[in-house]
Amino acid sequence: MQAEVNTKELIYLYAFIPTQEYEENKLTDIKGIDPDYSIEFYVFGEITAVACLVKHEDFAEEVLQKKVEDMKWLQEKAYHHHERMNTLHNTYTVMPLKFGTIYEDKNRLEDTLAEHKENIRTVFQNLSSKEEWNIKIFTDKKAFIKEVKENSSEVAKKVQEIEGLSKGKQFFEKKKLKDFIEKQADKEIDKYCESIHEQLETFSADTEVKKNWERKLTGRDDDMCWNGAYLFPKDKVEQILQFISEEKDKAEKDGSSFKFEITGPWPAYHFSSFQNQGGE
């Protein structure tokens, strides 16, 4: 058995879809992540796995680690993964899996499916008629700090306090003031983003707060201060986009530097974990 492992193809797994939806509308002839193979649909009871055969020379664990360092390769394959997911997402309730989910053979895949059947079924239910959106908020932090320094009542209060102190104490407190202002600015930025998030939460079936990206990553000249993934019911999306657009206008009118970036709908990449249902 072990001797055969390296001569067989591996299975690259894209997603799980409900078999019933697949039976109603069978997509065919889709080129796989390895262009020598087409995408296949493996039916395991009520769950269908969408997969494609791949060669060891490209996707064996140790090879894959090297390959992803080649940015061109990674870009091509990551886009492929995403495009195929969109194709599936347009037709089915899709539970997208992450790039590079690979199984050695069908039996192992079947074992995993058998083990997580209930969770996968729950995810299908949770994802049905919903879509993922990503909402990022940006602000020019430097400008924001300046604004806080000049206009915050908290800062004004602090300055007054300091003026009442002895000369020696004033010296140290003034040194700490810069820190205080920055913290105050952070607090206000968080407060704003969280208030938006809380309102979005009321529309959402699920949310995930993600890490902010640094400027080096975004290439923007302002700072990301919120990065959230949201699972919205499809029939609420229009209302939500309207809400964001109003918040955008409000921010602009108030002369604040908050900017929004909305992308979607996405396949529900952030809400498709079947390994830790109820575990988190």
Binding site: L74, Q75, A78, Y79, H81, H82, E83, M85, N86, H89, N90, K98, F99, G100, E131, N134, K210, W213, L217, T218, K234, V237, E238, L241, T263, G264, P265, W266, P267, Y269, H270
Partner: peptide
């Protein structure tokens, strides 16, 4: 707008990677 999924041209590589990588 709702309904059709985003095509690749509409999102940055970074967004795609951030979504599809574990």
């Amino acid at each position: 707008m709702a309904g059709e999924s985003l095509q690749t041209k509409d999102v940055s590589l970074l967004d795609v990677l951030d979504a599809v990588l574990e």
